[in-house]
């Protein structure tokens, strides 16, 4: 295309940057607010203080909620990446009679509104005593994150030449050895990045957590929801800033991993 010199292209660029500002400004606006000395969330922020950060780190309730979310997200990342990779591997290397059932059940949890699943799980988990427990949160979040693991791993495993495994097996390796020694190292960056994505989805997941949280066992998103709903304290911008930093770190990590992945190697 021609360089953007004419009016049409300039108008397009102006429009696009206005939309990008609409996308990004509300996200970054919380950062200056988190350092503001005002006790009320007024604009513009004034002064500089870290008191809202120390209020967050000193509060037992916020710490408990964060720690619960960290545990749930770590376990979800572990389970989702293992179960998702096993299933994807079976779909790619196995007999594909179950493809349709697999795809429907994979997409289902993304299609069906989270509120529906949250209400269903709330009822079900209360009757079997899983409501407000770490296993309950982990089970629910694993189902929600599995599709993202499978999409990532299907793209990666699909690019690993099946003959590599066949060669290893003809040299005497078992199927499992061939997977562990040949295929797994090739897709490891993708596996780690899918675990990172599962972690952040679980850590930030608000709807199912909202309904599954008990009076004492509250995830960080549930605590944030209550704070925003009831009094909107200036601790929220501080937490929001920390969460944005976490998202940036996860995305950077995924980007580094992607540059090392089999996807990139295969296209070179």
């Amino acid at each position: 295309m021609k360089p953007p010199t004419d009016r049409g292209s300039l108008a397009l660029a102006a429009y696009v940057y206005a939309v990008l500002a609409f996308i990004i400004v509300p996200l970054v606006i919380v950062i200056p607010m988190s350092f503001s000395q005002n006790d009320y969330l007024t604009f513009p922020p004034s002064g500089f203080t870290l008191k809202w950060y120390s209020e967050y780190f000193d509060s037992r309730q916020w710490r408990a909620a964060t720690w619960l979310s960290v545990q749930v997200a770590l376990l979800t990342a572990l389970f989702a990446s293992v179960i998702g990779t096993a299933a994807t591997y079976a779909m790619i290397r196995g007999r594909s009679r179950l493809v349709t059932a697999f795809q429907i059940l994979l997409i289902g949890p993304i299609i069906v509104p989270h509120i529906a699943l949250a209400v269903g799980l709330y009822l079900f988990f209360q009757t079997i005593g899983l409501s407000g427990t770490i296993p309950g949160f982990v089970l629910a979040h694993t189902v929600l994150t599995l599709p993202f693991v499978v999409f990532t791993m299907a793209a990666a495993l699909g690019k690993v030449d099946a003959n590599l495994e066949a060669a290893a097996m003809s040299c005497g390796a078992t199927r499992f050895q061939a997977f562990r020694l040949v295929t797994l190292p090739l897709v490891l960056p993708n596996l780690v990045s899918s675990a990172l994505f599962a972690f952040i989805i679980s850590f930030d997941e608000p709807v199912v957590s909202f309904f599954l949280s008990g009076v004492r066992q509250k995830t960080l998103p549930r605590r944030m929801f209550e704070d925003i709903e009831q009094n909107l304290t200036p601790v929220i911008p501080a937490i929001a800033t920390l969460l944005i930093v976490l998202s940036i770190l996860i995305l950077l990590g995924a980007q580094v991993l992607r540059s090392r992945s089999v996807t990139r190697i295969a296209s070179q």
Partner: peptide
């Protein structure tokens, strides 16, 4: 779901898919 090369046996496929379907 590109699947060329040596296939998994039906039993291994099922075992690998079991945790997913059960969950």
């Amino acid at each position: 779901w590109r699947s060329d090369g040596r296939r998994l046996s039906g039993l291994s496929t099922l075992l690998l898919l079991l945790p997913f379907f059960a969950l």
